[in-house]
Simulated assay, not measured.
Amino acid sequence: MFDTKIAYIVRNDLPIWQRLNVVAFLATGIAASAPEIMGAPYVDALGRQYGNMSGQPMLIFEADVAGLQTVQRKGFERELTMIPYVHAMFSTGHDEANREVFLAEDAENMNLVGLGLRGPKKMVDKVIKGLALHG
C-alpha cells in the first residue's frame, strides 16, 4: 500500500488544545517536505471545490520529553524526515521568532513537545516502537 509512514509524537503532559495545535503545525511541515503525498482537491455533489489533503494515513502517538528525545535521536540515526516543535515556540507569535527560539535550544537536549516523522515504513516503525497511540 504505502512504502512510507507518517507519525506524529506529541508530549503527553500538554493541555489538549496545545497537543492539537502542535500536531496541526507538524502536519504542515510533513506536507511541505513531501508534496507527493497530497491528494487531489475534493469536489462535492454540487460541484463546489474544496482543498486537498494527504492521501496517506497518519498516526499520532504520545510520549514524555525523554521519549521524544529518544525518537529524535533514532530518527537522525535513520535519516528520517523530522519536523520539530519545541516548548519555547508556544511563546512566539510568528515563524521567524520560532526559528530564533529553536536555534537557541540545546541541540542535544531539546525541550521537545512534538515531532513529525516520515520515512520508510520499517524505519519509522523501529523509531516509534514502544510508544502508545495518543489516547
Rank of each mutant, 00 (worst) to 15 (best):
M1L: 15
M1F: 10
M1E: 11
D3M: 14
K5I: 01
I6V: 15
I6R: 15
I6L: 14
Y8M: 10
I9W: 08
D13G: 11
D13L: 07
D13F: 11
D13V: 07
L14R: 13
L14Y: 13
L14C: 11
L14F: 14
P15M: 05
W17C: 10
W17L: 11
R19A: 10
N21W: 09
N21A: 11
N21Q: 11
V22W: 08
V23K: 04
V23W: 03
V23H: 07
V23I: 14
A24K: 07
F25W: 06
L26F: 12
A27P: 00
T28V: 08
G29N: 12
S33G: 07
S33Y: 01
P35C: 01
E36I: 08
E36H: 14
I37V: 14
G39E: 07
G39V: 09
G39P: 01
P41L: 06
P41Q: 06
Y42V: 14
Y42C: 12
A45T: 06
A45V: 06
G47M: 09
R48M: 09
R48L: 10
N52M: 11
N52T: 12
M53H: 04
M53R: 04
S54Q: 04
S54I: 03
S54R: 02
G55F: 09
Q56C: 15
Q56L: 15
P57T: 12
M58W: 01
L59W: 02
E62K: 02
E62T: 08
D64C: 03
G67R: 06
L68F: 02
L68M: 02
Q69N: 12
T70Q: 10
T70F: 02
V71P: 07
V71Q: 11
Q72A: 01
R73F: 08
R73I: 10
G75W: 01
F76E: 14
F76M: 10
F76D: 07
R78E: 13
E79M: 05
E79Y: 01
T81R: 12
I83Q: 08
I83D: 05
P84G: 10
Y85V: 04
Y85C: 06
Y85M: 09
V86M: 13
V86E: 13
H87P: 00
H87G: 03
A88M: 04
F90K: 08
S91F: 03
T92V: 15
G93I: 04
H94Q: 11
H94T: 05
D95T: 06
D95E: 09
E96K: 13
E96P: 00
E96Y: 11
N98I: 05
V101Y: 09
F102T: 13
A104R: 15
A104D: 15
A104S: 13
D106W: 07
A107P: 08
A107M: 12
E108H: 12
N109T: 06
N109I: 07
M110D: 00
N111K: 13
N111V: 00
L112D: 00
L112P: 00
L112R: 00
G114W: 03
G114P: 03
L115Q: 06
L115E: 05
L115G: 04
G116P: 13
G116C: 09
L117G: 13
L117N: 12
R118I: 10
R118V: 03
P120D: 15
P120W: 06
P120A: 14
K121V: 04
K121S: 10
K122C: 03
M123S: 14
V124F: 05
V124E: 12
V127P: 01
I128T: 15
K129D: 11
L133K: 11
L133W: 09
H134K: 15
G135S: 14
G135D: 09
